[in-house]
Amino acid sequence: MRLVHLDNVKQDMKLAKPISDSGRYLLREGQNNLQRFRKRLKKLGIKYIYVEDEISKDIEVDDVIRESTREEARQFTREFIDDISNDKTPDFNKAKKQVETIIDDIIDRQGVVINLYDIKTADDYTYAHSVNVAVISILLGKKVGLNYRDIKKLGLGALVHDVGKANIPNDILKKPGKLSEEEYKIIQEHARLGYDKLKDFKEIKATSLSVVLSHHENFQGNGYPRGVKGEELHIFPRIVAIADVFDALTSDRVYRERWSISEAADLIVSRSGQKFDPELVKYFMRYITLYPSGITVRLNDGREAVVVDQNEGYPRRPIVRLLDTGEEIDLTDELNLVIAEDKVS
């Protein structure tokens, strides 16, 4: 399978990963005649889909968690945020079980490359983003050596980190243009609002709450809402800060198209020691896949190819398959060739 822009969907392509919205399947795996659905999907804010065609039929794009786990977690996050916004008591036991399921999936699928191009509709963005942030945070927490109990607390905080956005007007959250200074100040309130909504529930620990309050703090101390800096900030929000920005950048939004994974990774590195904890950035970069299987790239000689697999230890030199001839090239063997662009589809 491979990832393609809706504008480039062809007659011979079939849907390789299902598309859902608000817990309902819109299109199921194997759906053909995809051009018929282009306009409808664009209205939902979807710009890219996974397809299977002749050139990509044997390329595997495995996710680090099961599709059923991802969908259940999205739906749960929606219910949790709805409960909070309606002043109801959320189901914390269900929340903890949801986090445990994500952790168990990650443990069961050790070695699976993270597929970070999750297909999100505009309405589903907050919930899908919350799940992705939880997955990336749990993976990073595991890599830095947190124990199982702490990983569960980290995962819970990450899953509900944006709960305060339930109290932010939709016309600001989904504004297609640049936010005004006043609107940006309103957006910034979501961290404090989320913390205030959750702080009196004994079922959520202080370390999980620190994620909700402090995931927009910066390592050098110029973040919000409190301006806490460095290791004065608990490690949980320092982890989630990386996951939050990374998933946001690599997601399509109403006001911009997604960044490529390599572009987002470069930004994370460029802000190391300023916005992000430099030690955590080192761990993150050690385990991120810059060119996931199924994305289309352009080589420095102008030819386009789809990524087939990665070469361990050589993150910028995967194995690719040329779109015009089907020839496979291992970029560790062809040192004169490099990936010049990875936002091609």
Rank of each mutant, 00 (worst) to 15 (best):
L3D: 03
D12M: 05
S20Y: 05
S22V: 03
Y25H: 10
R28Y: 12
G30R: 10
G30I: 09
Q31M: 12
N33D: 15
L34A: 11
R36P: 02
K39C: 02
K43H: 15
V51E: 01
I59H: 02
S68D: 15
T69R: 01
R74C: 09
R74K: 15
Q75V: 09
E79S: 12
N93A: 12
N93Y: 14
K94N: 14
K97E: 14
V99F: 03
K120Q: 13
K120R: 13
T121V: 11
D124Q: 12
Y127H: 08
L139Y: 00
L140P: 00
N147Q: 12
Y148T: 14
D150N: 15
K152C: 11
L156D: 01
A158S: 13
H161W: 04
V163M: 05
G164D: 06
I172C: 04
I172Q: 04
S180R: 08
I187Q: 08
Q188V: 02
L193Y: 08
K199D: 12
T207H: 06
L213R: 06
N222I: 12
G223Q: 03
G227H: 08
K229A: 15
F236D: 09
P237K: 06
A241D: 07
A243D: 04
V245H: 08
R256G: 05
R256T: 09
S260M: 02
I261K: 00
I261L: 06
L267A: 06
V269H: 07
K275D: 13
D277Q: 07
P278A: 11
L280Y: 07
Y291R: 05
Y291A: 05
G294M: 10
R303M: 10
E304I: 10
D309Y: 06
D309N: 14
G313V: 09
R316L: 11
D324V: 13
E334A: 14
I339W: 01
A340E: 15
E341S: 13
